[in-house]
């Protein structure tokens, strides 16, 4: 990998995002709005509804958002010919992927910092563990979403098709991640599937950080990171310097 070209790609992606005001605004404001909505829903109800669900949501949002943003951005790069041009230049595939991961990782950091900040400061989310760990999980989770988005963009011809991968790849993970039904009481077969899905571990990690004062999440983080690396490697395989 080459630092100059990796940073060039990351910088360029960030300029493109900044130019797209509406997308930037949604990236930063929407997660806070969703957290507020969730808090509001439970305001008149007894019990810790918001605090129980908020950690899972803090894991879901960066994953979904980065999946969508990356799949559409890289699909554009594939169809506009700029990817082919870049691959005909002295640019490593790792630099291309690394640049994207860096740019979207940075966006995810700001995005999650805002969502976590709003949740803990204004919405009374109790975090037993260190709050900064929530950010670490969120960023890793965002990189995972980006890596998956990049991979699926190879199988879509239009942006419309790319967005359709969301119900296929993301919704089942949301259903099985423990948000709706605790993973341990799922039917055996579904529990096994849930154990194979990366989002489950991101949600587990978030939940542990918010419930334990000394959360042990290295294993979960390792698994999320492992899935992200695997998806990046698969994504790299779809970047071909030569086409048929």
């Amino acid at each position: 990998m080459n630092a100059r070209t990796t940073l060039a790609v990351a910088g360029r992606v960030l300029i493109q995002l900044r130019r797209d005001r509406r997308t930037s605004a949604m990236l930063l404001v929407l997660p806070c709005a969703v957290m507020t909505l969730l808090w509001w829903m439970f305001e008149d109800l007894p019990g810790a509804g918001f605090s129980a669900l908020a950690p899972a949501l803090l894991a879901l949002i960066p994953f979904i958002v980065m999946f969508l943003v990356t799949s559409v951005t890289t699909l554009r790069e594939r169809t506009s010919g700029t990817l082919e041009r870049l691959l005909a230049m002295p640019l490593g595939k790792g630099d291309f992927l690394g640049g994207y991961a860096l740019a979207f990782g940075a966006v995810a950091t700001v995005q999650s910092a805002l969502a976590v900040g709003v949740s803990t400061l204004f919405l009374d989310l109790d975090v037993a563990g260190p709050t900064w760990l929530l950010l670490v999980v969120a960023v890793l989770d965002a990189v995972l979403g980006s890596a998956l988005g990049l991979f699926v963009s190879a199988f879509a011809r239009t942006e419309f098709q790319a967005v359709q991968f969301m119900p296929a790849l993301v919704v089942p993970q949301i259903l099985l991640c423990g948000l709706f039904v605790d993973r341990s009481v799922l039917p055996g077969f579904l529990e096994v599937i849930s154990n194979c899905l990366p989002l489950s571990y991101a949600v587990d990690a978030m939940t542990k950080v918010s419930e334990d004062s000394d959360p042990q999440i290295l294993g979960d983080l390792g698994l999320v990171g492992g899935f992200a690396v695997a998806a990046l490697v698969l994504g790299a395989l779809t970047l071909r310097r030569q086409s048929e």
């Binding site: 360029r12 300029i15 493109q16 010919g81 700029t82």
Partner: peptide, 12 residues
């Protein structure tokens, strides 16, 4: 190499 369709970033 200049491709037939311009391959540049429209939003830059």
């Amino acid at each position: 190499y200049v491709t037939q369709a311009p391959s540049v970033y429209d939003d830059l």
